[in-house]
Design a protein around this nucleic acid. Structure first.
Length: 206
DNA sequence: TGCCAGGCCCTCTTTAGGGCCTT
């Protein structure tokens, strides 16, 4: 698989359209089957952290008020990931915040998202459910820190993505898995996974 | 204080409803 940037946001709520802001972001660069670089920072968007979010994440209003500005952090992380494809667990969530926070500093996203949750639904339909924590446990992947903190969740999403890549290679005898194949698998029902791999994984089968 | 979303997927579907997943 080509290099990708696995990202995870912690936020004050579910939707930037209703005033929620990012409080923390992490980005993990994965290349040649391993993690090669990482970025993590809390960020101060000038908002308070709701009590239930602090209970969930451990991130407090005091912590974000001591953090660098959202403008600074988003500029740094955008430079860090460059034009690598972005991977996130339930990417529709992180995509909303990535686009909204970048728009806040006058930038626009320049790459596509790949969703590890949609991939897991296709490749591991037998898993008990497709929450990140359940999949980490199911695949016996390392728990790299506290759930609901950006760096730990991003790192576990990176390990999950590599596991899904290995599963595809093992199950279909592929030499390599491209981002194009992963993008197509996202759009394909689980029942047609084999057809999708046959069509878009062509040229890489053993 | 409590509330607010939305894309995807399945089915008791498609002129819809509800669960999953993210914070």
């Amino acid at each position: 698989m080509e290099a990708v940037a696995v990202i995870d946001f912690e936020t004050t709520g579910m939707s930037p359209g209703y005033g929620a802001r990012a409080t923390e972001i992490a980005a993990i660069i994965v290349r040649d089957g391993q993690i090669i670089d990482r970025y993590q920072s809390l960020m101060n968007a000038g908002v308070s952290v709701p009590w239930f979010i602090t209970q969930l994440t451990g991130i407090t209003t005091a912590m974000v008020r001591q953090a660098p500005s959202a403008r600074q952090v988003m500029g740094e992380v955008a430079d860090f990931v460059g034009d690598y494809p972005l991977v996130a667990h339930n990417a529709s969530f992180d995509k909303k915040f990535w686009d909204a926070e970048l728009a806040g500093i006058g930038h626009a996203r320049q790459q596509d998202f790949i969703c590890s949750m949609l991939l897991a639904r296709r490749i591991l339909p037998q898993a008990p459910n497709h929450k990140l924590g359940t999949l980490v446990d199911y695949a016996k992947l390392p728990v790299t820190g506290r759930y609901h903190r950006a760096e730990a969740d991003a790192e576990m999403t990176a390990h999950l993505t590599l596991y899904l890549e290995r599963e595809l290679r093992r199950r279909f005898g592929l030499d390599a898995v491209s981002c194009q194949l992963l993008t197509q698998i996202q759009k394909t029902p689980a029942s047609r996974l084999g057809d999708c791999v046959g069509r878009y994984g062509s040229g890489t089968t053993k």
